[in-house]
Amino acid sequence: MATGCGIGTGDSAEDPGVDVAALQTGNYRTTPRTPEELRTPATIDIQESLRLGEYVPLIMETSPKLVFSRVKYQKKMFTRVDPPNIVDNFSTVAPGFVAGWETIGQRREDELHGRSVDLTVMQFTTSEHAAAAVKALADGIWHSRYPPVGTLPIPGYADAQGQARQYGAISAAAARDEFVLWTYIGGGVDIPPNQNELADLAGKVFDAQFERLQDYDPTPENELAELPVDRDGLLGYALPASDGVAEAVLSANTALHLLQRPDLTKRAFEDAQVDLVVFGETEFYRAGDDRAADRLHAYFMTQLDSEYRTVDDPPGMPDAHCVENPDTTGSLKCLFTVGRYAAIVAGTQIQELHQKASAQYTLLDLAP
């Protein structure tokens, strides 16, 4: 497997293959943003959710066979302005919501082909708000388009709201202090489905999550707007996102929730000594050194679906790898490395992709 650019950050002149000054970046920004520019409503709003996400275990930690995650069309971070959509009018029926995080684990890539667990962790301003939210969620689901077919107990959680759903699935909600957990567990392919077994699994998922939350210290409400939005100044080197799109710097463990194969990626992160990940208009990963970034780049190449085909690389970036699924609109991607950073850039048409990749390369060439 060919590796990425593999140059030393800030030393691109030593690599005759890349002349950063000659890259065709179009109208995309190529100078780092200032800390003031990074403090947008979108980046400020998600910070408590990101803090909460640090204390959410992956589903595979409870159920080792559930190694796939579902990332397409899924939100992982929830805020006051963008709350969970578990029930209609969430903010009205569940007042006091502060932040939330969603994690998903499933047996196979398609959630309909095996067991799947969806867990949403929610923080409220008070324990009273949390307890009321559990009842409101349960009631809202009873009046939803796809209501439950019955109730069921959740072992170890006498005050939980457990519901038997259609096709063998279950859902359950429970509160502890100012936190609410809600889970939906698919029935999988068991015939007949054993919903009591799923209720046992819900209890184990709740146990693991509530235990982890004991180490979480919520930010006081009057300090939420002051939370920092960056780590190690990395976000300034990301290609600016479209207006209103949240950008985030995450720890490696938190970033695993946003990737399709957290089991494989966790091993790749450990091998490459990844400590921070940036998600926004583009995504990039800070590895331990240049060689580690090359190994991580090679891993990401192996994870591309077999349908992807090679397309032209950006002019002046001979070691980049650009691909497209010819059967899927908007599937263009370029993967490359810049020193200790492994980057993935997506686009909808080839010129846009090339310019975005060139601009992100230029920015990362300046990163520490």
Rank of each mutant, 00 (worst) to 15 (best):
Q214T: 13
I141V: 15
G162Q: 00
F97S: 01
A2G: 09
A248V: 12
M1L: 14
E324G: 04
V278R: 02
L364Q: 02
Q355W: 01
T40D: 07
L38N: 03
D305N: 13
Q195E: 14
A138C: 15
G8N: 13
K204T: 11
S69T: 09
P153H: 09
L304V: 08
L250T: 10
L213P: 01
A357C: 07
P57Q: 08
P262S: 06
E247K: 08
D11H: 11
A130C: 06
E223M: 12
S91D: 14
A292S: 15
G8D: 13
H129D: 15
P218S: 03
Q163R: 08
Y55M: 05
Q74P: 04
F269P: 01
P368F: 10
G105F: 05
V274T: 09
K356R: 15
L58R: 11
N253Q: 10
R340N: 05
G186M: 07
L234N: 03
Y184K: 06
V180N: 02
L201K: 05
A255G: 08
H143V: 10
T219K: 06
F269H: 08
D289A: 08
L119W: 01
E36F: 04
G186Q: 07
F279M: 12
A164D: 09
L332Y: 11
P368N: 12
E111S: 11
F300D: 07
T337P: 01
L353P: 04
R70H: 14
T25Q: 08
L66Q: 02
T34M: 10
R107K: 14
H321L: 10
P315F: 09
D263P: 00
E111C: 01
T125D: 11
G96H: 00
P240V: 08
D312H: 10
Y216L: 05
D118Q: 13
E37P: 00
V117Y: 05
